[in-house]
Design a protein around this nucleic acid. Structure first.
Lengths: 193, 193
DNA sequence: GCAGAAATAGGACAATTGTCCTAGTGACTG
DNA sequence: CAGTCACTAGGACAATTGTCCTATTTCTGC
């Protein structure tokens, strides 16, 4: 009758709570309250809290991979796809204003905790980086593609951070427009001889 | 004999630990271990942990104010001063790679904790924002000055976040150069008639 | 319907948390 | 010298933490 396994329910609830409250500040009791499971019963599904974190990161990696694969076949052009990426900031505005970017805040928190899973969390960044690099590559940016990908990632992260600090809708719109202008103004690929 | 009061020692130690480990993950025991004070004795200096946070934020506000006042009288021109601001990312590279930007990470953490002091933490951002706005204003940017200040803040925050995630020195240098180019390329003030 | 496996509840456990109290020290003031 | 005050040590306190154990229930394959 349960469409998803209890294990997946735990991962899903933990994913959400880790995003909204942070990993360290989320307790077994918090997750148990959402999944409606006995607190001591976690041990049957996950040996430690770190195991839950590993599962959450694995789930985020899988979800992000699937999302990017979807994006890859949508949009008329690579430039349009990058434009859609930029607009996530608008789409997820409320959540970002309250909890920041899920990717960036987890990587930063794990860095502060000196947690071994920090590299795994950074791998989520790399998924976006690789996807963006491919778009820029298809736009003919060649060797610059990876630099442009990192640049756009950094711009997005910075906007997300200030969105969380200030919650200023005008700022978001200005920066979104600036990113679109930047994208439009990228040097076109060298013409054929 | 003690040059600084015990209270200031507590604030200083808490400031450092909040930066390196995060506010929530830092305990009274951690601070007591640094200041060499009895754990239960905190109550004499601070009623609650939130009071320590308030004191830390107040100290950061005061320190930042003093630092910016120093910067205001250094550097040949407003543009040179903004250039120096950009180069903090290089100066504090090691710390940023390990713990992120002190301003951004605290604001983000307090947002996630739904902590009442989040607005106070954002006020540290505003100090930089106002200082940068003045520089851009003196550069003749007029009405754009505040937008430029927020833009530069966001760029810096994004670079700091990716520095923490990747620790890639080449990325830092590229972005630093890009920011200097952006600064140099700002439209000059309209000439006198 | 039954044996075995999977899942669950409930709680024990030591450790740690923030908070708060009391007793006592030492220095300065009258 | 008596008295006040800032400061401190040590620990009590209930609550919460992650972890782990042991019954008991629920489900599954035969």
């Amino acid at each position: 009758m349960t469409r998803v396994s209890k294990r997946d329910q735990i991962v899903e609830a933990a994913d959400d709570l880790f995003y909204r409250q942070g990993f360290d500040h989320t307790s077994f009791a918090d997750i148990a309250g959402v999944v409606r499971i006995s607190r001591g019963n976690f041990y049957h599904h996950f040996k430690t809290k770190d195991d839950i974190l590993d599962a959450v990161i694995a789930a985020r990696l899988a979800n992000t991979r699937a999302m990017l694969a979807d994006w890859q076949v949508q949009g008329d052009s690579p430039a349009a796809r990058v434009g859609a990426f930029i607009d996530i900031l608008l789409t997820n505005r409320d959540k970002i204003e309250r909890h920041g970017c899920p990717v960036g805040t987890l990587a930063t928190e794990l860095a502060k905790l000196n947690h071994g899973a920090q590299a795994d969390a950074a791998a989520i960044f790399t998924l976006f980086r690789t996807w963006l690099r491919r778009q820029f590559d298809q736009m003919g940016q060649g060797a610059r593609a990876d630099d442009l990908a990192l640049h756009l990632l950094a711009r997005s992260q910075g906007i997300a951070t200030l969105m969380t600090a200030y919650r200023d809708p005008d700022f978001l719109c200005r920066e979104r427009d600036a990113l679109h202008d930047w994208l439009d103004g990228l040097a076109p690929p060298p013409p054929h001889h």
